[in-house]
Design a protein around this nucleic acid. Structure first.
Length: 819
RNA sequence: GCCCGGGUGGUGAAAUCGGUAAACACAGGGGACUUAAAAUCCCCCGGAGGCAACUCCCUGCGGGUUCAAGUCCCGCCCCGGGCACCA
């Protein structure tokens, strides 16, 4: 039956089905289908950033996993909505355009075209009827609309703030975009600048963002990363009176945040951040020169230097004193750069006995160290050679002596609360989201500044505020966007009073574009509104979102925040956007990370040319655990390629009789395979599911036997999510009509047929494997033991011994413990 | 420094609740089919000893618990990622 023409030719098969799917609209949903779907399943993956380099194999890896899920759900009867789009605004594109001397307006469409070609070629089941391009006015007018909605809800504010300034990108960065003092994009050292900026008040939602995590079906690693980033700490605000503060001494109090109010009696000094506003008021005349010098020194020190944790503690005494509200002690007030203005209140009570940093500082400057917590076996007098941060009971703490740390926290706060000098407080590490960028390639902020009316939002019906095509869009060091130089655009009349005014020149952070795109996909057919309520209610929240964990604290948290905000505004009916999120691992190559600089990047196009998209997809899903990542080895692709060839040949050589039932032994193997694959695919355990199908193939083909159609058809359907083109072809060749993805159903298994008729039971003597016996499935412990003792080798190891104990693990193992 | 992953054959990797370590593949070796190649089919493939039956050793290192440990506990080492003076 095999002849030259029947050979598996990936190129021809894939072209045929790509064209057929396109022609028949197999993957596209019409507006009516979108509106009326009975079993909606929204399968989302992170839309790509269309760079000039083309789609990376890492993207294909991510998308294949998500596409396998979408195709699997579809074969299980779901109406799968699987859109894709392009996240094309942002500094990366802008910098690239500057480098090559073009304009992103001209370059981006070419990149998108190139990405689209590869996305179609790798076989993603994308609905190209519902796509977004964040740089198109049809999208970003609604990004501006989102901004205005939040603005009107009071979640946006403009404030002069010390912001992270990247001198190379010449723009402001969010905290999340500063990686150990360096710009996330270009790795320049980030500086601090005071600039007016637009902020989203994400911290209003810090508690909710954290609390919701606990019962969300997300990858654990992602939840942990978010929870660490939000960084809740529970404690108390305590205020310390300034000693001898003159007439207004009563008013001037220093507020500190502490997670250890139980150690208050051990607070022997205070430290303020050098930038703290009370420093000048506290500093005595004598100390002023030293304080000034220190503050100048810290201000001049770059951020990277200041953030190093291993350097020696520095600081100076202000000459001022505060009163410890617990015991009335006069304690000195210092300033030091290890206290940060950006966290808590910018001031701390220092408890050197029980905080490592304070201990180090106290030692360096000869400040008193008092023990207030005693661990078991210690008492008030036990000397401290290092800070003791652990648990224990209170000592040297007046009335509170003897309380446990936990009880004392509450008791001390209660006492001080009654006196008006403390209150319980929760602090978050999370900062507000700075969304303005002094750059060109982004959606302009829809605000007009008027000398009389101040900042006035552009009326919604005047959106979009179009981004003008600028010949010269280089950023400058002015702290203003290049848009400030576009006079025609810059000048506008005030929407409130009609007077001459000017537009806000900042554009929004790229993460705002990507923070709501999944809300837009179902509504892309609508030009008159951003988010169509009924479609949104039908399809959202997203059923499954798959993407890289590098976005755990950036994109995913912003998307959650925007969803919460829009929910509170009544625009959407849910407050968490993604029911399920799975982080895939990193694809590396031969043990090393792939990167352009190392020159070891794999081009998906080259692999597809050689082996076809189906083999590439199958290999990517086979080479390791999807959630762990994997190592791409060039030679390994041969395995999946052979597998598809064998599948092809099996179909070509199959017995023609479609009614011939499977051979019984093979049928059992088939049902076991169906069970395993059906259980593992929805859990993204792709590699072992593929191994199971390969194993089944070995059974079907054993000895070159002629397979039967009934043995192959379910396999073709199960392989289809991984290798959709060739499986469509084989499905057709097996005589089925209507197209696999349009009409086939996922195979089911019969529990009665997955059981083995006989079992191999391992036999151990004293825990060591000494033999194996084959018994019927119904055999009980006694008959297994009997059979085991008959085994020659087992009998030898038992000779002269008496069996004292038998451990029997049904269906697996029997261990004869003998002495 | 802290928090997450991870360390298993020549290689990529498997191994529910502690229950036959190395499934499935790649590479390598041998054979069948073929004029030939491709594709396909069969066999071998952790180390040491042995003609073989079989025995001993082996999941980063050192201890422990257990009839039984890749898996659990204690103490280390190494690699990858994240966070980093967060009060």
């Amino acid at each position: 039956m095999t002849n030259e023409q029947d050979r598996y030719s990936p190129e021809a098969v894939e072209r045929k089905w790509r064209e057929r799917w396109e022609r028949d609209g197999v993957n596209r949903l019409t507006e009516a289908q979108l509106a009326n779907a009975e079993n909606p399943y929204y399968n989302l993956m992170m839309f790509p950033y269309p760079s000039a380099e083309g789609l990376h194999i890492g993207n294909i890896y991510a998308y294949t996993g998500a596409d396998v899920n979408g195709r699997f759900q579809r074969l299980n009867g779901k109406d799968v909505f699987q859109p894709i789009g392009f996240d094309a605004f942002g500094i990366h594109s802008e910098n690239h355009a500057l480098k090559v001397g073009g304009n992103p307006y001209d370059l981006i469409p070419k990149n998108i075209e190139n990405f689209t070609r590869t996305l179609k070629r790798f076989g993603g089941m994308f609905d190209w009827n519902h796509t977004v391009d964040t740089t198109h006015v049809s999208y970003y007018r609604w990004t501006q609309w989102v901004f205005l909605k939040l603005y009107k809800a009071g979640l946006v504010e403009r404030r002069e703030a010390p912001v992270n300034w990247c001198p190379s990108c010449m723009t402001v960065l969010a905290n999340e975009q500063v990686v150990s003092g360096l710009c996330e994009r270009c790795e320049s050292t980030v500086e601090q600048r005071q600039l007016p900026q637009w902020f989203f008040r994400i911290t209003d939602y810090a508690g909710q963002l954290l609390d919701n995590l606990s019962d969300m079906d997300w990858s654990d690693v992602t939840k942990k990363a978010q929870s660490a980033w939000i960084g809740r700490s529970q404690g108390a605000d305590v205020s310390f009176a300034i000693a001898g503060g003159g007439a207004d001494g009563e008013k001037a109090r220093i507020r500190v945040f502490t997670t250890r109010p139980d150690t208050l009696f051990g607070a022997t000094y205070m430290v303020l951040a050098p930038e703290h506003p009370l420093v000048d008021a506290i500093t005595t005349a004598d100390a002023q020169p030293a304080v000034n010098a220190y503050r100048a020194e810290v201000a001049g020190r770059d951020l990277v230097e200041r953030q190093k944790t291993d350097k020696e503690k520095t600081g100076v005494f202000t000459g001022g004193y505060a009163i410890n509200p617990a015991n009335g002690a006069r304690i000195p007030i210092w300033i030091a750069d290890y206290v940060l203005m950006g966290y808590g209140t910018g001031a701390i009570m220092a408890v050197p006995g029980h905080d490592a940093r304070d201990f180090e500082f106290a030692q360096a400057f000869g400040l008193p160290i008092v023990r207030v917590i005693a661990a078991p076996g210690e008492d008030a007098a036990t000397p401290l050679t290092e800070a003791y941060p652990g648990d224990g009971t209170l000592v040297n703490s007046g009335d509170f002596d003897g309380l446990t740390v936990e009880d004392a926290k509450q008791a001390i706060v209660e006492r001080l609360e009654a006196e008006g000098s403390a209150k319980a407080q929760t602090n978050f590490r999370l900062h507000d989201w700075c969304v303005s960028r002094q750059r060109y390639w982004g959606p302009p902020i829809p605000i007009i500044h008027c000398t009389d009316c101040g900042a006035v939002p552009v009326p919604e019906d005047e959106l979009p505020v179009e981004l003008p095509y600028l010949q010269d869009f280089r950023p400058d060091d002015s702290g203003q966007s290049p848009l400030a130089r576009a006079e025609d655009w810059f000048n506008a009349s005030c929407p409130a009073c009609g007077k001459d005014a000017h537009r806000d020149t900042d554009v929004t952070d790229n993460f705002l574009c990507s923070g709501w795109y999944f809300l837009r996909y179902p509504s892309t057919g609508r030009d008159d509104l951003a988010i169509e309520p009924q479609l949104t209610a039908k399809w959202l929240p997203v059923d499954c979102y798959i993407g890289g964990n590098e976005h755990a604290v950036l994109h995913l948290m912003y998307a959650r925040f925007l969803t919460m905000a829009l929910h509170e505004l009544g625009i959407i009916g849910f407050s968490e956007p993604f029911k399920r999120f799975r982080a895939h691992g990193l694809l590396i190559r031969e043990g090393r990370k792939m990167s352009k600089s190392k020159g070891n990047v794999i081009s998906p196009d080259a692999i597809i040319n050689q082996y076809g998209a189906d083999t590439l997809r199958l290999y990517l899903m086979f080479l390791g655990a999807y959630e762990q990542g994997g190592d791409y080895r060039g030679s390994g692709i041969q395995g999946p390629f052979s597998f598809l060839n064998r599948l092809w040949q099996s179909v070509a050589e199959a017995d023609d009789d479609p009614d011939l039932p499977p051979e019984p032994a093979i049928e059992r193997a088939l049902h076991r395979t169906i069970r395993q694959v059906s259980e593992q695919l929805p859990e993204q355990q792709f590699n072992t599911a593929i191994a199971a199908m390969m194993e089944y193939m070995n059974v079907v083909r054993a000895g070159g036997r002629t397979p039967r159609i009934a043995e192959l058809a379910p396999l073709v359907v199960m392989v289809a999510p991984f290798a959709p083109h060739v499986c469509e072809e084989l499905y057709e060749r097996l005589g089925f009509k209507g197209g696999l993805f349009a009409s086939a159903h996922w195979p089911t298994y019969d529990p009665a047929k997955v059981v083995h008729e006989t079992l191999n039971i391992a036999v151990q003597v004293n825990g060591k494997l000494r033999g194996e016996v084959t018994v019927t499935a119904e055999a009980g412990e006694d008959s297994v033991r009997e059979a085991a003792e008959l085994d020659g080798n087992v009998a030898r190891h038992l000779a002269g011994k008496r069996v004292r104990k038998v451990i029997y693990v049904p269906n697996k193992l029997i261990n004869l413990v003998a002495a």
